[in-house]
Amino acid sequence: MAYFRKVPAKNKKGYTYSFTIELGKDPITGKRKQVTRRGFETKKEAEVVANEIENQINKNTFILDSNVLLSSHIEKWLDLIAKRKVKETTFKNYRRVVKNKIIPLLGHFKLNEIKPAHIEHFIAKLLDEGLSERYIEYIFAVLYGSMEKAVDWELINKNPLDKVKVPRGRRRKYVTWTREEVNKFLNVAKFVTAPVYHAIFTTALYTGMRRGELLGLKWEDVDFDDSTIHVRRNLIYDDEGFRFGTLKTESSERDITIEDYLVECLKSYRIKQLEVKMGLGKLYDDQDLIFARQDGRPIYPRTLTENFNRATKEAALPKIRIHDCRHTHATLLLEAGVSLKEVQERLGHSSIKMTGDIYAHVTPKIKARTAQKFGDYMKLEG
């Protein structure tokens, strides 16, 4: 319902007409939302415009604030929505993408000015920069999420990204080691790296834990009696330094059963660590970390990677990332006959579908073994 009134003005009549339409409360600020238009010579003119706006409101096509810049909106989206939905490290990546890629190319546009053609041009620019399709897909996802919220907040009527096809990043081909290559690597690492690195490499290849999970492990997380490692935290290192954070997903908090070889490896390493700790005395920064520098402080991720690459080179093995120890572990589990469900739980994946998608390359071997097992069973005499 529109409310009309006379407003004093410097014209022959001495007044003009204005109207106000109430739109309820702003979902963000809680303040009243109103549409006000002024400067009509007659009430009839005001009524025509008011009726037009009310029709747009009824059809959900009316935009209250058509002057919001993308740069302003996406910053608000980061602080109000994204910051509360994703992990700290992911949020930092979001902010980096917004600052370095989205705002420089699109930030000056008003939200209601952005059309599919602008997004196509945006993607073309990113491709011209030489960015990978996978990274562009990631940037697109961040922008899409912010524009969806603009629709929810009634700043735009529809998401202009809906009609744009983003380049789909090629599925990563994971490089993993064989059982023989794993054993060779660990034997070499024992002699070319410090005990802490041999211990962490062994744990990585025998549990499939993520790098941050490994570096965040404390001795309180290991139960030698039950041969179990409790994964409870993640070590983060960025421009703010070291700190402990939550795990990647809720399912990442898990208990991993370890076998005798890893148990003995960790016990042996612990003795060495205690000897160093006693030698340093008060100089040792005791944070109860399993994998730490000689003075007890956390290990830099880059230092871990450098030692991993050096041991790989010395062992003359195919180069893989430290994270590929996780994929190697999972692949060997599946080849050993462990079920996909057990692998999912051990790795801390949120769904079995994720596990199946990542390790689809192992499926042919599993199928062949399953067929063989069935054939062998059918040959058995009753």
Rank of each mutant, 00 (worst) to 15 (best):
K43Q: 13
K43F: 11
K44L: 11
K44A: 15
E45C: 02
E45N: 01
A46Q: 00
E47W: 06
E47G: 11
V48F: 08
V49D: 04
V49P: 01
N51C: 05
N51W: 02
E52F: 04
E52R: 05
I53T: 09
I53K: 07
I53S: 00
E54M: 11
N55A: 14
N55R: 12
Q56G: 04
I57D: 06
N58Y: 12
K59P: 11
K59M: 15
T61L: 12
F62K: 01
I63C: 05
I63Q: 06
L64Y: 09
D65H: 07
D65R: 10
D65V: 11
N67I: 06
L69Y: 07
L69R: 01
L70I: 04
S71H: 13
S71Q: 08
H73Q: 08
E75S: 14
K76E: 12
L78D: 00
L78C: 02
L78R: 12
D79L: 10
I81M: 10
I81G: 05
I81S: 03
I81K: 12
A82F: 09
A82M: 04
K83P: 01
K83S: 10
K83Y: 10
K83C: 04
K83T: 03
R84P: 02
K85M: 11
K85Q: 06
V86T: 14
V86D: 06
V86H: 03
T90E: 01
T90R: 05
T90F: 01
F91G: 05
N93L: 14
Y94R: 04
Y94P: 09
R95N: 10
R95P: 00
R96G: 04
N100L: 14
N100Q: 04
N100W: 03
K101E: 09
K101D: 11
I103R: 03
L106W: 03
L106A: 06
L106F: 01
G107S: 00
G107N: 02
F109G: 00
F109S: 03
F109Y: 09
F109K: 05
K110P: 07
K110T: 05
K110A: 13
L111M: 13
E113M: 15
I114A: 08
I114E: 01
K115S: 07
K115M: 09
P116M: 06
P116G: 05
H118L: 04
E120G: 01
E120R: 10
H121G: 02
H121L: 06
H121R: 11
H121T: 08
F122G: 07
F122I: 14
F122D: 07
F122Q: 10
I123T: 07
A124V: 11
A124W: 05
L127W: 06
L127A: 02
D128W: 04
E129H: 12
E129G: 06
E129C: 11
G130V: 00
L131F: 02
S132L: 05
E133V: 06
E133D: 14
R134M: 12
I136M: 07
I136A: 05
E137G: 15
E137P: 08
E137N: 13
